[in-house]
Amino acid sequence: MAKLKLAGVSAPSSKKMTDSNLLLLITVVIFVVMYAGAMIFLQKGFLKPQTFFNIMNANAALIVTSCGMSLVMITGGIDISVGGVVALVSMCCAVYLDYAGGNVFVSLLIALAIGLAFGAVQGYLVAYLDIQPFIVSLAGMFFARGMTTIVHTAPFNVENEAFVALKGTRITVPGMGTVNRLGKYVDAYVEIGVIVAILVVILLFFVLKWTRMGRGFYAVGGNRQSALMLGINVKRTRFMAHLLCGLLAGIGGYIYFLHVGSGSASHASGMEMNAIASSIIGGTLLTGGVGNIFGTLVGVLSLSTIQNIVSSIGLDQAWWTGITVAAMLCLFLIIQSVILSRRH
């Protein structure tokens, strides 16, 4: 090939961080500062590793659903049906286990099927019929919530033995235990859900970074028209993002179910909000094209840490949780908006 030199074109600008990395960095710094602050000023439980693991235990489901949310948001979409799907999954599995005397493995399949069904229908509407994802998933959310009460109205605890055994399974984290007041060494533990959540995070990180599909998510989110011209199957890519999000909502739903062990129409209320907030705090851009799955994990942890801090400084009335999450989301949205408008 002939050598052609372009005169008069400005030289590349100095090395700049990509948007993804910058937003991730902000999140990590804020989380570390917050947690360290809590350790120093609040002490209480924050010094014990188990407190951290409890945050993980309580939020494993949120981590998984938030990962799904991040995928969709990276492609420039949104899915606010995840909370509803989690509730529906819990209720359906609970009813199946207790009323139909089913086995645990099938209940897991039910959870996955529900998630996939929501993902597939919503994905089809969004990707192939080009309907706004927000409207589609708003309908999805109301449908899931409505269906939950249709399946069963009153909340109840699951008493299926195999399930209760699975629910109680604890995985010891070596070397992280603490000595309690009686001088007895207590092992630190996590629930099964946490292991699943961590696997999901690692797997998705791989998918997003190295696979053709994962890179397609970013391209589609960056500029849909361009992605099409670059030879990416935009419709299928968007469909896959919603499908995966649905699937992850199903998995998250089962983890949630495993954690609480009951079915209720009011389960996971506002979870979509927490998932969106976690993704955004984790550096996923609402406008699409930018995001990092580790960021999402840190986002979930940040969100639940601040909730823990708020309740441990005495603001434990129910409304403070909602207000805190909302305030945190608001803050990060504004940070994103300001940073990105300055950069471009």
Binding site: A139, F142, F143, R145, G146
Partner: peptide, 13 residues
């Protein structure tokens, strides 16, 4: 009234 949203969601879609 709790199940209502499910039907309306279908209408929306």
């Amino acid at each position: 009234s709790d199940a209502l949203p499910a039907y309306k969601a279908v209408v929306v879609v």
